[in-house]
C-alpha cells in the first residue's frame, strides 16, 4: 500500500502540481485548502507525511502544525513546511511547532519530491 502525503496550501495550482509529482512517484495524495480544511480531513485517515504552507487563510500553517501534533495519531508524523526565503523567523516558528523539514518557495516539483522521499518511501 502506498504512503499517503497530504498537501495543505491555499493555491489550487500548487496542490494540483504537487499531486501530479507525488502521484507520479507512487505516493497517494490528499489535499487541504487551508489548515482548518486539512485538520478536518485528517481524522479517520492515515496520512504518513504532511506538506503545509505557512501563510494561509482560516488557519495558518503554524497553528495547523501545532494542532496536528496534538493529535495522538499524528504526533510523530513528519511535516514539511513550505517557507519563503525571507521567512526565516516563520521557519523557526514552524520548527518549534513541530515541522522539522522545509522546502523554500518557490520550488519546482522535483525539489519537493526530493524532500518527501528523504522522509518516507512511496
Amino acid at each position: 500500500m502506498s504512503k499517503t502525503v497530504m498537501i495543505v496550501d491555499d493555491s489550487t495550482t500548487l496542490r494540483q502540481v504537487v499531486r501530479l509529482a507525488l502521484e507520479g512517484a507512487g505516493y497517494s495524495v490528499l489535499e487541504g485548502a487551508d489548515g482548518k480544511d486539512a485538520l478536518s480531513k485528517l481524522t479517520g485517515q492515515k496520512v504518513h507525511l504532511i506538506v503545509s504552507d505557512v501563510n494561509m487563510p482560516n488557519m495558518d500553517g503554524i497553528t495547523f502544525v501545532k494542532a496536528v501534533k496534538q493529535l495522538p495519531a499524528y504526533k510523530f508524523t513528519p511535516v514539511i513546511m513550505l517557507t519563503t526565503e525571507a521567512g526565516e523567523s516563520k521557519k523557526l516558528e514552524g520548527q518549534a511547532a513541530g515541522a522539522k523539514a522545509w522546502v523554500v518557495k518557490p520550488f519546482q516539483p522535483a525539489q519537493l519530491l526530493m524532500a518527501v522521499s528523504k522522509l518516507i518511501m512511496p
Binding site: L14, V17, V18, N55, T84, K105, P106, F107, P109
Partner: peptide, 19 residues
C-alpha cells in the same frame, strides 16, 4: 494587506512550480 500579500505570494509560488 495580508490578502494582497498572499495573492502575490501564491502567484509567485505557483509560477515557480512551472519554472
Amino acid at each position: 494587506i495580508n490578502a494582497i500579500f498572499r495573492a502575490a505570494h501564491t502567484i509567485k509560488g505557483s509560477a515557480g512550480l512551472f519554472g
